[in-house]
Design a protein around this nucleic acid. Structure first.
Lengths: 345, 345
DNA sequence: CTGAAAGCGCTTACAG
DNA sequence: CTGAAAGCGCTTACAG
């Protein structure tokens, strides 16, 4: 590979002039400029980014660290959609994107963790939907580069984050049900200790009940995991309650949970929404294809990915205080919700 | 940030010894080793990867260049699934993944193309489903690093590629239909000039017809684009043919095309599969949810992504001849295919 | 096993 | 506008 030296020789100038032309920094006569560009073209020369990064101390990349301990895996739809938003926004930025997934326990000595110390990282996007122990990320603070959590709201305020406003999302879902006339509204949610989303959606559910003057019934709450099986099991339990206590509506904290709830309802011979209403959370593509199509709270994953990159860029430039940004959810009303059966009598 | 120098001072050794300990190259006494490791730990020191890459001339990353000129966009399911496979396999490798999307025309002077000249790239994975002009990629050969096409079969044999065996996939689909007794089998495909997949699936279709002793009917072939609208339009045209010439089965070269064919069939009041059989290609998740569920040829995108990384690693290590690798498709028989109506009379 | 030295390919104040 | 020089933070033959 030719170096800047070779180009300088061919162009008949000093290598510092070549550098000035190619980086666009500093002033160069038009004549030298042309000679250098022509020589570079002839040799098919391109600056060695490693060398120039070392000398100039400029950072060229942003890291995306995704961490799947406890979490299903990166085939999840929401991850892919968010990633697509990130990639597209990165393409528009001046940065490259350096990717790394961690599966298994977070260990700062982990080979793969060294990725975080990559010296060309201007900042890190951190995707860790379930966090067992937040302090495991403490070492990231020692890097002295901005770290932005995505789709997770860390308790430690020193971290920046961008997340859906999950409480507002829960309000949209539950208010929709109370407005339809429901009073017995069950809740099926996720892991309260690991997932900030599970915490926020549950809190939002409780707040909306309170606002509507409905007392919480612990029998109608099932916090467990964000997957279909948990939805199905929970619904089966609800259906075993005495008829006066049984829910007329279920708020499922994810679409995958809602699919399980729907299945259990169908299996029990219930009609949706005539006998029971179901609201999900996420708005996956498949939620438009269920029978009936699912009423749900949309998370704009693609946009969240885009905004995350923009926010990280701001953090890189400003080096200021941590930023906490919420994205608005949207209620998508489809066929799985209606007024409760007793109102149609 | 501390440098190797600072660690050397604290440990009371020369910086070359620090380097030997931290890179694991060369022999060091156990005593020095401990001192160095302790000093590094104390200072929270990590090697500057940029500097060590420059000096050692070792490559640390693999690039994924995706190129969307002419192509829909990277939100496509197949891209996301393939990407997930790539990411997971990269995680298992010693490389980092450097990502870049190009939208718009391919121009070697394009700011974003400089990504390809990144000096820490050991190789490049190239994802360009539609290629207007293959020679636009010629400059990649000048990089002297392995380039591996994914899901596209370049005509230039100097390029390595990994792709589904699309002809075999078409055979699976069409043989399934001829085995059921169909003779009038329509084909709806993609852009023959831009897409190697479109070319291969079309050829496979023709080969299977020939094998079954069926003469090609140009009226039953509609090469256009890989999307739903094209499927719908093509089906409408087929249904306008005189009844004796009308197809009893349609092979759609992608699932999205099949969705359009299905819609047009339903809109015309046809029952699937009683009145007409439909086979797709891809096996997207949603193809299990159509009415009826779609018989289709599965592309194992995730596995293709994984294998692409493995193949690129081999190419990086061996620096040998280009490699051409095919992945096997699988026929997934669901409810959209059956024996033709006239056999049930 | 260890130190001293050269140098990877650039950038950038400095002087003129 | 341009050249000469220093040096970014490492690695690695070389000599002892």
């Amino acid at each position: 590979m030719p170096t800047i030296h070779d180009v300088a020789r061919l162009a008949g100038v000093h290598r510092s002039t070549v550098s000035r032309v190619l980086t666009g920094q500093g002033s160069v006569s038009e004549k030298s400029r042309k000679k250098v560009l022509e020589a570079a073209r002839q040799m098919n020369f391109h600056l060695n980014t490693v060398a120039s990064a070392l000398k100039s101390q400029r950072k060229t990349a942003v890291g995306l660290l995704s961490f799947w301990h406890c979490s299903p895996n990166p085939s999840e739809t929401y991850y892919q959609q968010t990633l697509t938003g990130i990639i597209n926004e990165i393409t528009r930025s001046k940065f490259n994107l350096l990717l790394n997934n961690i599966e298994g326990t977070l260990d700062p000595e982990n080979e793969k963790m060294k990725f975080c110390y990559e010296s060309h990282l201007a900042g890190i996007l951190l995707m860790a939907p379930l966090v067992e122990n937040e302090s495991a990320f403490d070492f990231l603070n020692g890097l002295n580069i901005p770290v932005l959590f995505l789709l997770y709201k860390p308790r430690d305020p020193r971290y920046s984050y961008i997340d859906l406003d999950n409480r507002k999302g829960a309000h949209l879902a539950v208010d929709h049900l109370t407005n339809l006339g429901h009073r017995k509204i069950a809740y099926v949610g996720g892991e309260l200790t690991y997932s900030s989303n599970a915490r926020d959606r549950y809190e939002g559910y409780l707040e909306s009940l309170k606002k509507a003057g409905i007392k919480e019934d612990p029998e109608l709450v099932s916090n467990g995991y964000f997957w279909t099986g948990h939805g199905e099991e929970s619904m089966k339990k609800f259906l075993k309650l005495p008829s006066g206590q049984r829910p007329t509506a279920v708020f499922a904290a994810t679409d995958t949970i809602a699919y399980g709830v729907l299945k259990a309802a169908h299996d029990a011979g219930l009609r949706v929404p005539q006998d029971i209403s179901i609201v999900g959370f996420d708005d996956y593509e498949t939620s438009n294809l269920t029978q009936p199509p699912l009423t749900t709270v949309r998370q704009p994953f693609y946009a969240i990915g885009q905004q995350a990159v923009q926010l990280l860029e701001t953090l890189v430039e400003q080096k200021g205080k941590p930023k906490h940004q919420f994205v608005d959810p949207e209620l998508i009303v489809r066929g799985s919700t209606a007024a409760p059966w007793f109102m149609n009598r």
